[in-house]
Write a protein that binds this DNA or RNA. Structure first.
Lengths: 346, 346
DNA sequence: GGGCATAGTTGAAACGTTTCAATTCCTGGG
DNA sequence: CCCAGGAATTGAAACGTTTCAACTATGCCC
């Protein structure tokens, strides 16, 4: 029965022979109630299987106890390496505090902040979690302008002040370079994303820092910028392999596992053995990464931690509690597998 | 501002110089209103940026316009091949009708139907979408017993009467067998799931039907039941390879891409070439499948269609409209790639 | 010119809570 | 035995809508 005849506080009150106020006080422990009355009310509520209406409660309290989250839908071969664990950890963290996650789709056309506006104005949500933010992100801008609580997984413009949690992308690629240097590589290339990707620029920066720290020069030809796809990764690797032998990289850091796979496939096509002839490192640690041939060395993002953290911060924010840290960076973890090579290069 | 000072219908009424009832009638077009008044109200609403409170509306209408969905969280190397497209298509379909999707986590312990009960009793949702149902599914049982609207992606006990959409798993594996037979294979094995998986039993059944239809005998040793993991798939393939030459299968159908990868890896380890020496077919078409070596022949599930369909049915159900079809089966699509072999076997 | 239907509008109730302010009930001290 | 004062309880308002029932014009017919 679709809650048409759900039991209300009124019925509990009648059954316990008290007023509805008393029932409310007992259930919320928000006023001193005689023990005997308390017991009677509790018994009545239990017998009737009473649960207070979230709707009525929300209306009264003027908050929905709901958090909005929307993610970018991507073509099926690009996919979202993080949705499942991220959403799950958010849902868990939220529920522990009596909140729920409302997911909504980002329409392909129109203002990206439209759905956010609608949810906010109709009072359906008390705050938002954003993910995959970027420079000049219109959603971030909109929420900041309207002073609505939100926390982002990812950064935007440095000068915009808003709470976020992000993976320390630069640290990740820096680690990757260090790892490769430790294996004896000196000519290390990077297959990077286009300039408009903020995350991509952090990852690229980490590569550059890693090279600099190791005192290695960077041949401009080693930095290939291309889009996020297997085909692009494959092509980029082809470009690198076409360099003259003394400039040809022996290792390559990529922005994603998908691109790493492209690179690996290019190596196979060129008759080379990935992990032996050329080392490849990915980013994301997609579920399959460990089962690929060769198993992929890659950077695992602490997605579940980000999810829990981001919700925790949002709850604090919505309750008006102070946020100890508004800008959190969590380090990724380098998963060393065979695509980066089992042995140091002589 | 967290909606503390959101504009209400009262303010619109005052600004337009009419009663709140009139405003409501204008906005919902639920009563005849003089054109001039109508214009005044509309103008006032627009000027104030008024949007009716979803909470108040829901309370009054006694429905939340929200659909609950929860999925099983899986270990990170098993993952959920369908969550992203499924959730996205559901969200889209729901929003087109003014509904939203509330996601919640399935706690590891305790009654599986507990969170469903809570959401239902507190009136937070008007209906549920279930996925990954199984035989004797306690959630299905609970919702049936309490006569609460839901639609499942997946089936349960044959004798339980409830609306569902499912992929025609048997048709999928049948297609796979046909395809392999067409390539010239006669000794075809299957790496299947344990008996407690309903989906697994449909997929196994399809294999058996396919073999029967082709007039091929099934050696009992060709049916290996094992759990859903790469390691298990690898082991199972090992078992099959250990059969004497004249009983050794030349092709194998698996229950999932993950197991197919295990099988492929076992072939490599045995010095065999998957797709040439032994054909392998997966199930799911995970995003990486096409980029594997060899690219994986597999069955793609029409996940987005299922999502749209399931929501459409649930909406009908909740509105009390008749459901033309209560049991829908959607065929998967065989994606032929190289792991099943480029050439017919002589 | 009176009655009457009808278009247009409004007041108020209701949805199910929480909580303020007021009331009743005790208990104990003088 | 009375009264103060705290403990326990209650009535009613409020949250922001929708919608029923009632009311007021307005125009039309006889």
């Amino acid at each position: 029965m679709p809650r048409g005849n759900a039991v209300t506080i009124r019925e509990v009150a009648r059954r316990a022979g008290v007023s509805i106020a008393t029932v409310s006080y007992v259930l919320n422990e928000s006023a001193p109630i005689r023990e005997e009355t308390r017991a009677r009310v509790l018994a009545a509520a239990a017998e009737l299987g009473y649960r207070p209406s979230a709707l009525a409660r929300s209306l009264r309290a003027r908050q929905s106890h709901t958090i909005g989250y929307s993610w970018h839908h991507v073509p099926r071969d690009h996919w979202h390496p993080i949705l499942d664990p991220f959403l799950y950890s958010m849902a868990q963290a939220a529920e522990a505090e009596g909140y729920h996650i409302l997911t909504f789709a980002q329409p392909a056309d129109g203002n990206p902040w439209r759905p956010y506006q609608e949810l906010m104005l109709t009072g359906r949500v008390d705050g938002f979690i954003l993910s995959e933010t970027n420079r000049d992100d219109p959603r971030v801008r909109y929420l900041l302008d309207h002073d609505f609580p939100f926390v982002a997984f990812g950064r935007a413009n440095e000068e915009w002040d808003f709470p976020y949690v992000d993976v320390d992308n630069a640290a990740g690629t820096r680690m990757a370079v260090e790892h490769l240097v430790g294996l004896g590589h000196r000519r290390i290339a990077v297959i990077a994303w286009p300039e408009d990707s903020l995350t991509g620029s952090y990852r690229l920066q980490g590569y550059l820092e890693g090279m600099a720290a190791a005192g290695l020069p960077v041949d401009p030809a080693w930095v290939v910028r291309t889009e996020h796809s297997e085909a692009a990764g494959r092509q980029a690797m082809g470009l690198l392999l076409a360099l003259p032998p003394d400039r040809r990289p022996t290792a390559v850091v990529t922005m994603s596992d998908l691109m790493a796979i492209g690179a690996i496939n290019a190596l196979y096509e060129a008759g080379l053995q990935p992990g032996r002839d050329v080392s490849v490192v990915g980013f994301d640690d997609v579920p399959m990464a460990q089962y690929l041939r060769p198993p992929l060395t890659t950077l695992r993002q602490p997605v579940a931690e980000v999810g829990a953290r981001v919700v925790e911060m949002l709850l604090k924010l919505m309750r008006g509690e102070p946020l100890p840290e508004r800008r959190v960076l969590l380090p990724p973890r380098l998963m060393v597998r065979e695509s980066s090579g089992p042995h140091p290069i002589p």
